[in-house]
Design a protein around this nucleic acid. Sequence first.
DNA 1: TTAAAATATCCCAATTTGGTATATTTGAAA
DNA 2: TTTCAAATATACCAAATTGGGATATTTTAA
Lengths: 68, 68
Amino acid sequence: MRLKELRKEKGISQLKLAMDLSMNQNTISRYETGSHQADYETLIKIADYFDVSIDYLLGRTDNPIMNK
Amino acid sequence: MRLKELRKEKGISQLKLAMDLSMNQNTISRYETGSHQADYETLIKIADYFDVSIDYLLGRTDNPIMNK
DNA sequence: TTAAAATATCCCAATTTGGTATATTTGAAA
DNA sequence: TTTCAAATATACCAAATTGGGATATTTTAA
């Protein structure tokens, strides 16, 4: 997850992000450290929040040709 | 997950897909019915297999403007 | 119809998750 | 450079989720 990177770009704390997404700060931390994985719903919430694709969020950038 | 749809388009069974991805047929079934969620690694394996974005796979198509 | 193929579900142990609380780290002001 | 508050990470743990084997159910083609 490129979460930490995105969050830093936006210049916000884990706590602010957590509040904006109605989650806990430690949950954000866990996603950033990679110890836990967000479920799909949360994944989409995060992607929406940062206006990025889930592929980008998950670090799947090396895919030049994609059907859909 | 648009898994069932993609699989049907390709005209293969759950069992074949499962074998190709080194998984169990019932696991595929569960993803298709939505009772279980694939972890990120599996998600990427599936997207790679069908050559689609994860956003598409997860049904996130209504996103006209995306940064990344 | 019936038999095989395909798909879904039951049971259940193991893994994963997220909350609370707390520890650790970071950074900025004094 | 210390100090203190903000920021981040983690330990503990109960609850939820996961996936495997086995089996039930549904679909399909002959």
